[in-house]
């Protein structure tokens, strides 16, 4: 599975990296570092990736291959 964060939609709510601490990190301004990128999701992180996507108030996270 892969995870993408739409850089135009993400506004730094920080919900994703709070629920998927081992998968996603944040920068000095509070944005997820995966913003605007494609991130590989290891199998053991799949439940956390789903939770991250579901918890984003902007609907900025898309899971590919789920």
């Amino acid at each position: 599975m892969k995870l993408t964060v739409d850089g135009n939609r993400c506004t730094g709510h920080g919900r994703c990296y709070t629920v998927a601490t081992d998968l996603l990190g944040f920068d000095d301004e509070g944005y997820v570092t995966a913003r605007g990128q494609v991130t590989d999701v290891p199998d053991n992180q799949i439940p956390f990736a789903r939770e991250a996507a579901g918890t984003c108030p902007e609907g900025a996270i898309t899971l590919i291959g789920d």
Binding site: T11, G12, H13, G14, R15, G30, E51, G54, T55, C56, P57, E58, G59
Partner: peptide
Amino acid sequence: RKANNHLGFAGGPHRCLGAH
């Protein structure tokens, strides 16, 4: 609760600055 995507801190560019 899982997948709690509430708008309590607004959304879009004016997302609450003080949310954290």
